[in-house]
Design a protein around this nucleic acid. Structure first.
Lengths: 127, 127
DNA sequence: AATATTGTACTATTGTAGTATTACAATATA
DNA sequence: TATATTGTAATACTACAATAGTACAATATT
């Protein structure tokens, strides 16, 4: 289970911080498929926010096929790899990159600039 | 001069659409250094928005050292290459890429995924 | 100097995001 | 079947972003 934490000074909405922490928890292996998350009320009390704030986070992750909610029993980590087809994943990657390119080009950067920079960031990370 | 167009359905604020079109105009060479932009009133009438909306766009671009405004005479494309140092440009590129990485990783994509995709997009563009 | 033209500043209005309050509906469990 | 536990829905409050209305200040032009 994750040790959830909210930072009111982060400038990021609470519900989005919750989303990010769950996503990161999955990516890092701290959260396993099938594992139950805290109940909306439980996490709301723990984080001292309203239960709707937690609910909003869970709901958005359910739309993204990352969580499964079962009324009466709770919310669980879904097996998103089974639900998101490789094609859907590829399309998501494509749309993210296209959006990125649009923003970058408005600053005058080329695709090559971006690739170069990403390479450098990758290298400096593994020092 | 650019043929400005606003899309109310874009989900992007008017002033930001104006900003993007000017930036893209510069990047694509349609706007030259020293060239005068429409007056805030002129463009406001043309786009059927309030003059403050145009003013806001110009002001933000002036902060970014992309435009120069001269009260009484108008707003002009500045020689941003002289004003933005290579170091600043590099930092901008870096911050854009880091932000991009954060978003992408929340979807489970790695830096390598992104680089690969960008390469493919670059290749398919030059067909 | 007078006037027109330019950008600026202040204020009000509208819409939306984020969060909370409260009541409800579905399911599990005793 | 009764009750507790779970997520859901409707509503409202607050803050802020976006835009507009209006008046102002600086500069150019005559």
């Amino acid at each position: 289970m994750i040790d959830f934490k909210l930072d009111p000074k982060a400038g990021v909405p609470f519900y989005r911080q919750i989303i990010d922490q769950i996503k990161y928890g999955i990516a890092s292996g701290k959260l396993q498929v099938g594992e139950q998350l805290p109940t909306v009320r439980g996490l709301a009390v723990e984080l001292k926010v309203n239960l709707n704030t937690v609910s909003k986070a869970y709901k958005e992750l359910e739309i993204q096929n990352i969580l499964e909610t079962h009324l009466g029993s709770g919310t669980f980590i879904g097996d998103s790899d089974f639900k998101i087809t490789p094609k859907q994943k590829q399309e998501k990657l494509h749309s993210i990159c296209r959006e990125f390119l649009t923003i970058a080009s408005s600053y005058g950067f080329t695709t090559t600039d971006l690739i170069t920079e990403l390479h450098e960031m990758q290298n400096s990370k593994n020092k």
